[in-house]
């Protein structure tokens, strides 16, 4: 299958799912409500903690907004597998698979739509953050958004792999929260892991999102040339490549 064909098919699949999303604008807005609530109802508590040792440099929003952004990437993209299960049940997946469409495009078109939605919500989130008192360099915010985008590509791909493997909401939902909740807690999304006792810090360093969160925080402080950003970029890149490869392999498998 040629690259051109895959690209053209990806655009078709992306268009279909984007139209489906635009048809339910309400869902896009409500998808961003949960992280917004964290921002509005939880964020202000943190401004009291800025002076605690280990909280990190900068103003509380510079620590908190990056965390909520990564949380958005994790949960916004994590749940996309439900849509695939719906399509498996309605027969849409099979109907498309019997056409000559590129199998990889069936994954990429979906993932790009999911990423576009998360990117839109992330921009909304940053705008609200700025209104609440976030101060960060524009370049840092751009780098942070880049992290969110690459993370959503990876997480959405993995969500589809999990959905393909389970094929039912009843199995997918508990498995999803069993995976995402510890990953979220260990990534230091809500409070920086620099506050953690030694053992928790060690466990946290074994999970990928920790590095992405730290890198995004560093970027929001304007510290681009740091080990944190480099590590985060490396982890995000590896995660992206491995996840998309796993997803593509699963979608190309003949009896998926």
């Amino acid at each position: 299958m040629s690259l051109g064909r895959t690209a053209a098919d990806t655009r078709l699949v992306f268009g279909r799912y984007l139209r489906q999303t635009l048809r339910s604008k309400v869902a896009v807005v409500f998808g961003a409500v949960q992280p917004l609530l964290y921002l509005v109802l939880f964020g202000p508590l943190l401004s009291r903690l800025v002076d605690v040792r280990g909280f990190g440099a900068g103003n509380a929003w510079q620590v908190f907004v990056p965390g909520v952004l990564i949380q958005l990437g994790l949960f916004g993209a994590g749940f996309v597998g439900f849509g695939l299960i719906g399509d498996l049940r309605s027969g849409v997946v099979e109907r498309m698979r019997v056409t000559p469409v590129s199998r990889t495009a069936l994954l990429l078109g979906r993932v790009l739509r999911d990423t576009a939605v998360v990117a839109f919500q992330a921009v909304m989130l940053v705008a609200v953050g700025l209104a609440l008192g976030l101060r960060a360099p524009a370049g840092g915010i751009a780098v942070g958004l880049l992290f969110v985008v690459s993370l959503s590509v990876a997480v959405a791909s993995l969500s589809y792999v999990l959905a393909m493997a389970t094929r039912s909401e009843d199995a997918f939902a508990p498995l999803l929260s069993a995976v995402t909740l510890p990953l979220m807690l260990l990534s230091g999304i809500l409070l920086p892991m620099s506050l953690a006792p030694g053992w928790l810090d060690v466990v946290s360093r074994c999970t990928p999102f920790r590095y992405v969160v730290d890198a995004t925080r560093a970027a929001f402080l304007g510290d681009y040339a740091t080990a944190a950003v480099a590590e985060g970029a490396l982890v995000a890149a590896v995660l992206l490549v491995v996840s998309v490869w796993l997803g593509a392999r699963r979608f190309r498998a003949e009896n998926a």
Binding site: D9, L12, R16, R19, Q20, R23, S24, D87, S90, G91, V92, E94, R95, M96, T99, P100, V101
Partner: peptide
């Protein structure tokens, strides 16, 4: 069981299918 998304208009499904082929 067919293969259409209940929320998508019939014409859009037909158009996509024609494009996929």
């Amino acid at each position: 069981g067919g293969g259409t998304d209940p929320s998508i208009p019939a014409g859009e499904e037909l158009d996509l299918q024609a494009r996929l082929y």
